[in-house]
Amino acid sequence: MTAPAGPAPGAAPGERPSAAEAPAPVIELHGVSVGYDGRTVLSGLDLRLAERRIGVIGQNGSGKSTLARLLNGLVVPDEGRVLVDGRDTRTDGRRVRSEVGFVFQNPDNQIVFPIVAEDMAFGLKNLGLPKKEIPGRVAEALESFGIGHLAERHSHLLSGGEKQLVALASVMVMRPRTVVFDEPTTLLDLRNRNRIRDAVDAMAPAAVVVTHDLELVSGYDRVLVVHEGGIAFDGAPGEAVAWYREHCS
């Protein structure tokens, strides 16, 4: 998973043979400050993200989700700019979101449509894909996660683990170049947590993963610790986790 390009390692179910193995887009934050209702959450961030696997850890309320949302324009900065391959999330949000997918913590709120296949098709329609190409793409994406049998099921009646896989597949079907995850395993039991971990490890696009699960990020290329309105530590996973344990527990 440290290889900058080429097929993802291992034959885990998240593998996407059809994915264009493009390098991760470069996400830059320039002097970014953001807050809610006049209360600053993150201030003066300067970051350049280009690694294939980046972890984000930090205490509750430290601003991890806010940082994640900045990366695809779901939140736009009060000050400064966020650029994805040079595109400003403020003015080019839709385009940025077609390249930077987002998987939310709670798949219940991520899954929009009542039937799995319809939910998968939603993103493709939004990309303007011709109608006749959609079923094939949907089936392929579901198969790649080993959940082809769920296509006609009610999305809201699936188990938590199945829902999170559907949420992930519904983002991957759009063939993003980076996927941002906001606590993708928090609501899952150990087995499903491992399924998601393997799927994330094996998938072709780059990933930015916000998590409280420190083990999840142990093999990543880079880990950021969000603390007191900024990035308090930025480096290898082992050191980042050690810093976090020392300063935040």
Partner: peptide, 16 residues
Amino acid sequence: AADDVADAIDARCYPP
């Protein structure tokens, strides 16, 4: 929940 779903809809490039 509606707020979160609205975000999820945005994140998937709505509108077409």
